[in-house]
């Protein structure tokens, strides 16, 4: 498990490499220990990651802003669009409404890690083969929902696809290809 101190060092190295001025405010803040936040251990893509944030912090913001896993996207903040979909113990959840304090040691899988699972890899390949993606912003969530669908239903019907995917909005309108690609992924070995 990585410790906060090492990561801090890594940040300072990055800043130095980019010849960024480190603003004086941050120096001050680093030495102030006025607020004690809980350390929450998250099991993300097979690694344990510590974040310091209140228990009610949605997983989305812990992943994006505290762990730098920006592949998971913010779309609505109220579980209406599915852009933030990740897996917790293999089940798709909207990470914008899942508090980090509620997850415990359950396994979190994000778009950065889904390619390591057979359904995730098949979905990614089908997505590229049928050129599903346009702007791509919603596609992390689409791929996570599709991978979860195939993990539970290897040969989904159109109704299964509707049920599993209706929570994921695509503003570019890639739905026709999403449906085709799920079927293609299901057929692939």
């Amino acid at each position: 498990m990585k410790t906060a101190r090492i990561l801090n060092g890594a940040w300072q190295k990055s800043a130095a490499e980019m010849s960024y001025e480190i603003p004086p405010l941050w120096h001050t803040l680093q030495t102030q220990q006025t607020l004690e936040l809980p350390v929450v251990n998250l099991h993300v893509n097979g690694e344990v990651k510590a974040v310091e944030a209140a228990n009610d912090t949605p997983l989305l913001w812990a992943l994006r802003d505290l762990l730098g896993l920006t592949g998971t996207k913010f779309g609505c903040g109220i579980a209406q669009c599915g852009a933030c979909t990740v897996h917790v113990d293999g089940k798709p959840v909207r990470s914008c409404v899942v508090p980090i304090g509620s997850i415990g040691e359950r396994a979190i899988t994000t778009i950065e890690g889904i390619g390591a699972t057979p359904p995730g890899r098949k979905v990614q390949q089908a997505w590229l083969h049928l050129e599903v993606i346009q702007c791509g912003y919603c596609q992390s969530g689409q791929i996570m929902s599709a991978a979860a669908l195939l993990a539970g239903k290897p040969d989904p019907s159109d109704a299964d696809i509707d049920a599993a995917m209706a929570g994921n909005i695509c503003r570019c309108g890639t739905y026709v290809r999403i449906r085709e690609a799920i079927k293609k992924a299901a057929r692939s070995a």
Binding site: N8, A10, T31
Partner: peptide
């Protein structure tokens, strides 16, 4: 205090 990894 900045003790997490975000700025890494």
């Amino acid at each position: 205090p900045m003790t997490t990894s975000r700025r890494a």
